[in-house]
């Protein structure tokens, strides 16, 4: 199995004001693979993945050094449209954040803003996305109810469906199961394994079992630095670095 590079971070430094939170990170994520980012709270995992869809642009007084490549194109380049980047790189957030609209509208929103006007194809796409997100059976009778009435796990799957609808190539998950119960977590994990057939997936997680269960590659971040990166199996069984081993065995974090 050969691994094609989809995203590449090169020499990335990141600052909130004067505070540096990412130091010299070099990392590659591969097509159709699930890559997990683990590390103790505050080590910069969210900050890091938010660089791939340029979400950090929204926060004022921040600065990035280095380069991020998507398909070998520098996403911070001069002629690059951030909106297009975000269409190709979808994101699912830590807390389920469906819009205060109906279930249907939540999914159709992304299609509409992407300029799709045809009612029929929007509807097809909505159904397809909900189906892929393993939510269709549960909501097909209440498509026009408010999304806020769904359970936490359903809301998160709705957010995934919403994200799938715009056909991204990469999906970033920032602790998607952090606020969910074990059963919902299970279903989201299964979903991610299914989605990897079509997408490149990066997932931030606190939960090492989760990383072990679903990821092909794992990166361990500590205090803003990349300590170790490699195939999940290797990293979990024979870590190269002492810090990684300590973290995995629960000595800190």
């Amino acid at each position: 199995m050969n691994n094609e590079v989809k995203i590449k971070a090169k020499n990335v430094n990141f600052y909130y004001g004067n505070k540096q939170v990412l130091e010299n990170i070099d990392l590659e994520f591969y097509q159709n693979r699930v890559s997990a980012l683990i590390g103790p709270s505050g080590c910069g995992k969210s900050t890091f993945i938010r660089l791939f869809n340029r979400m950090n642009d929204l926060i004022s007084n921040t600065r990035m050094e280095g380069k991020i490549y998507l398909d070998n194109i520098d996403i911070n380049g001069k002629n690059v449209d951030v909106v297009k980047i975000r269409r190709l790189v979808g994101m699912v957030f830590q807390k389920p954040n469906p819009f205060p609209k109906t279930i249907y509208e939540n999914v159709s929103y992304g299609l509409e803003v992407n300029g799709i006007k045809d009612k029929k194809s929007i509807e097809e796409k909505v159904i397809e996305s909900l189906d892929r997100a393993a939510l269709w059976r549960e909501v097909k009778d209440r498509l026009h109810d408010s999304a806020l009435g769904l359970s936490g796990g359903q809301q998160q799957r709705l957010c995934i469906a919403r994200c799938l609808a715009v056909e991204p190539e990469v999906i970033l998950f920032d602790e998607p199961c952090a606020s969910l119960d074990p059963i919902s977590t299970r279903s989201i994990e299964e979903l991610i394994l299914e989605l990897k057939k079509y997408y490149t997936i990066v997932i931030v997680t606190h939960n090492m079992q989760q990383a072990a269960r679903i990821s092909d590659f794992t990166a361990f971040l500590y205090l803003g630095e990349l300590i170790e990166f490699g195939p999940t199996e290797k990293l979990f069984t024979v870590p190269k670095e002492k810090t990684t081993e300590e973290y995995l065995t629960g000595k800190f974090g």
Binding site: N79, D81, K84, I85
Partner: peptide, 10 residues
């Protein structure tokens, strides 16, 4: 190219 600026920006 798929990343370049849209017309809508203006």
């Amino acid at each position: 190219m798929k990343f370049t600026i849209r017309a809508g920006v203006v």
